[in-house]
Simulated assay, not measured.
Amino acid sequence: MTSRVVLISPAMNRSLRQARFDDGSPLDDRGRERAAAAAGSLPSAARVVVSPSARCRQTAGALGLDGAEAAGLAGLDVGRWRGRTLDEVAVAEPEAVGRWLTDPSSAPHGGESVRDACARVAHWLDGLRETDGRTLAVVEPDVVRAAVVHALGLPASGFWRLDVPPLTATEFSGRGGRWNLRLGRPLDVPEAGSGF
């Protein structure tokens, strides 16, 4: 049996446009339009799950997906940095940001370490190895990064080396205890070459 998992990154919102740690803001008008334009472009699935953030729930809705919320697929918990830009935090806490970006076990913001987030997502992904049918999941970019790190057996330090554009599909197929990947396929939306 081959397990198939498709991770969809959310459409744009104010936080993504401003390079801000997610603050729970909804999709912006353009993000909602782009997601709605991609509705119907995804394959059928036996199950649909969604990260608990507003932008993931709204992206799923605009794509026409009705999925169960999965707390285990939340984005990286950045504690007191939530809602701030990386630049703002780097000015206020330069040593803490330096540690956080270089040590996957560090969580100077009081939230979750990258290593812990990767372990949480790895546990979820490995739980799907023996499932039948395709799983579609609209998830935070952090979840996509963590899943790729796990599937390829990368060190947790590789997490920051992966870019996840909005409204892209990262596809995993698993068999025999390993995962294969197809990375970052843009969803079929008009003006696909114009960027998101």
Rank of each mutant, 00 (worst) to 15 (best):
C118A: 07
P104Y: 04
R84G: 01
T2Q: 10
A169I: 06
L136E: 00
A137V: 15
A71R: 08
S105G: 12
T168S: 00
Q18D: 15
G24W: 06
L86C: 13
G64V: 13
W160S: 15
P52I: 04
P52G: 03
A96Y: 02
D22T: 10
H150G: 01
V50E: 04
A92G: 05
L136N: 01
S25M: 03
S194A: 00
L162M: 11
G177F: 10
A36S: 14
A11R: 09
P52D: 01
G40E: 00
A169D: 08
V48H: 13
A62P: 00
R185D: 07
R32V: 03
W124N: 02
A137F: 15
Q18T: 08
G67P: 05
E88L: 05
R185Y: 01
A96S: 08
R32Q: 11
T2H: 07
G40V: 00
W81D: 10
D87F: 05
R32D: 09
G110V: 06
R47M: 04
L162A: 03
T170M: 11
T135N: 06
V148I: 12
R182F: 06
S41L: 10
F172N: 07
A92Q: 13
A107E: 01
E130L: 15
T59R: 13
P190D: 14
R134V: 03
C56A: 14
C56V: 05
S53V: 08
A119W: 02
S3K: 07
A37K: 12
M12E: 14
P43K: 13
R30W: 01
A192F: 05
S44Y: 01
L187D: 04
S173D: 10
G24C: 10
S53W: 12
E69L: 09
W160E: 15
V6C: 14
R115Y: 03
A117R: 05
A62V: 01
W100R: 03
R182V: 11
L181V: 12
F172H: 08
S113E: 12
V78A: 07
T168N: 00
R175L: 15
W179M: 09
A107N: 02
S157R: 11
A70I: 04
G133Q: 11
A192M: 04
A36D: 11
D23K: 07
G75R: 09
V139P: 06
A60C: 14
G72K: 09
E93P: 08
T102D: 02
V143E: 04
T59I: 12
H150K: 02
P155I: 09
N13R: 09
L86H: 13
W124K: 04
